[in-house]
Design a protein around this nucleic acid. Structure first.
Lengths: 204, 204
DNA sequence: TGGCGACTGGTCAAATTTGACTACGAGGAT
DNA sequence: ATCCTCGTAGTCAAATTTGACCAGTCGCCA
């Protein structure tokens, strides 16, 4: 899974209805251009693709209000919402060493109920443990680790990184269960999109 | 940069001359199918592409010795060797959160002189520091970090991961400078490929 | 009043990646 | 003899990603 679909669905969802450029801008606002590699082409492609798949409903082109070509507005369909939550849950649980996917997941984590969020992160911890085991077993074959030479360093790196990931995840779980942040169904949600016309303070 | 080109060049280089299936097999032997996502298609594609670019020389098809279609053997050209070292150096220095690239780099690090290897890793540490600074600055705008809500967790994760990466890198530098492993020009190199006919103990 | 650059909203071709599929021979089971 | 399956070596179409480019409009400065 690449992070783009989740990011795009999430952005559209927060707006309720958005056109490509708004999504593009939100991603930049969130700093996503730093950690995901979401280029314009990918964003527009994802929008069209998901519209074709029925995850988004494309509203007829509106004559652009501020110059430039006409624009298409998108809105989540029911199956789009399902897909969004499926991707979100997957992003938070699976360990596939894609930090950008995880980042996107964290960005939207408050769309879930607090309890579920913590539960998913605990699943993530288990996935990390499994990965760690798999790595150490793979790299510790019959003859002992001696014969590996510098190749053992690769394993060492993965283990180190899995441990760091676990530590961070446990910290987050603790904060969440300690009552931090506002989750789904707990009142005014945190809004992290740019309003129409608001300028982006982090523009390049 | 994706890891594939480096991986493929490195595999061919260690063999001296290799066909696609050998490369494919070596990558599996190294466990690369676990951390890089090097599928057959990508490998064959990379071989052809790099042959077209003059990085590899494609020897005429040899009638397969053991059944199956005829196979093409590849060999590094001079510019292929240059490219290999360029990719290798880049993989070791730049921090683009692509663990697979770094893994590949570590796998081939002993092709460099010991001194250079350490120097490149030190550059990597500097890159990590810069990334850390960039992240904290981006996420700590005028109003203080309070207004970020859960979005601050993304920053927290990146910082945590950068710190872990730095720690691991420093450890590796220490081991290298302490005399571990056999680097370029220091005698019999470590050989990590499967010989013709040797079976892969880690096959799926 | 016209030229310039920046911003807006996107398109497009080329490169890459993915995942499924093919074809061939060896070796054993039937 | 025939069938079946496995390993070998690789192809191919479809999906995705990348990076470059395009065409309007606005403000503004001279």
């Amino acid at each position: 899974m690449s992070a783009i679909r989740l990011l795009v669905l999430g952005a559209v969802k927060q707006h309720g209805r958005a056109h490509g450029y708004q999504v593009r801008n939100d991603l930049e606002y969130w700093g996503a251009h730093e950690w995901s590699h979401a280029k314009p082409g990918s964003i527009y492609h994802a929008l069209k693709q998901m519209a074709k798949q029925g995850l988004l409903h494309a509203h007829e082109v509106a004559p652009s209000a501020v110059g430039g070509p006409p624009r298409v507005e998108y809105e989540l369909t029911e199956s789009g919402t399902e897909e969004y939550f499926a991707l979100l849950r997957e992003a938070l649980t699976t360990y596939d060493q894609k930090m950008d996917v995880l980042s996107a997941g964290i960005g939207f984590i408050v769309d879930l109920p607090r309890k579920e969020a913590a539960e998913l992160l605990r699943r993530r911890v288990r996935a990390l443990d499994e990965w760690r085991t798999a790595v150490t077993e793979y790299y510790t074959p019959e003859g002992g680790p001696g014969q590996l030479g510098h190749i053992g360093e690769i394993m060492h790196m993965w283990v180190h990184s899995a441990d760091a990931g676990k530590e961070w995840t446990l910290g987050l779980i603790e904060r969440i269960e300690g009552g931090a942040y506002v989750f789904a169904g707990e009142g005014d949600p945190f809004v992290g999109v740019l309003a129409e016309g608001e300028e982006n303070p982090y523009a390049t």
